[in-house]
């Protein structure tokens, strides 16, 4: 099958590649670009481990072809940390609140949470739970992920983070 030349911006850098039309975006990111932080958990659009940010949208990159991302602006987990190399508020929140265990869902979860906080700076617990409902975590039971996102929201908003009583 003839290959198509594609270009896009990933984590601020222009990238290009030759792909078959059927190449899934997640494979292009993981195998052509060697950005392996984006994971594959179910391949059926349920688990969200492959979530990335495309042009301001959270997208499951296992259900999009790489050719469709021509000209798009993409952020993956590798582009989330602050410019000075320190952890972003969300990354720090996940660490401080023990919002991860095996780490496999974490990149997708953080990308999704980042977009959520950009659309809703102070989400309620219910809004957070709805907001991350396209991401499955097998380890944490979500409770500490919710706290991690609340921690990050407070840090970004400059407000005090109060850990909810159990």
């Amino acid at each position: 099958m003839a290959k198509t030349h594609i270009t896009m911006k990933v984590n601020g850098a222009e990238v290009e590649g030759l792909v078959e039309p059927r190449t899934l975006l997640v494979h292009f990111i993981r195998e052509n670009l060697q950005l392996t932080g984006t994971h594959i958990g179910c391949e059926t659009t349920h688990c969200g481990a492959c979530t990335i940010d495309i042009d301001g949208m959270s997208v499951k990159s296992c259900t999009m072809f790489a050719v469709q991302a021509q000209g798009c602006e993409i952020m993956t987990i590798e582009g989330v940390a602050n410019a000075d190399g320190t952890l972003s508020a969300l990354q720090e929140g996940f660490r401080m609140m023990h919002g991860l265990q095996c780490g496999f869902c974490t990149p997708g979860m953080i990308l999704r949470a980042q977009r959520l906080l950009q659309e809703n700076a102070s989400p309620s617990e219910e809004e957070i739970r709805m907001g991350i409902s396209g991401n499955i975590c097998r380890c944490t039971g979500y409770q500490n992920i919710v706290k991690a996102i609340q921690y990050a929201a407070a840090k970004i908003n400059g407000t005090e983070f109060k850990e909810a009583a159990e």
């Binding site: 993981r30 195998e31 060697q34 950005l35 392996t36 932080g37 984006t38 994971h39 594959i40 993956t76 987990i77 590798e78 989330v80 940390a81 952890l87 990354q91 996940f94 660490r95 401080m96 023990h98 991860l100 780490g103 496999f104 974490t106 990149p107 953080i110």
Partner: peptide
């Protein structure tokens, strides 16, 4: 104690089998 593992896992730098090329 906060986890040692989290620095790499929160930044997409874990080393899982399928990452190996």
């Amino acid at each position: 104690r906060k986890r040692v593992e989290d620095a790499r896992f929160t930044q997409g730098k874990g080393n899982y089998v399928d990452d190996l090329k």
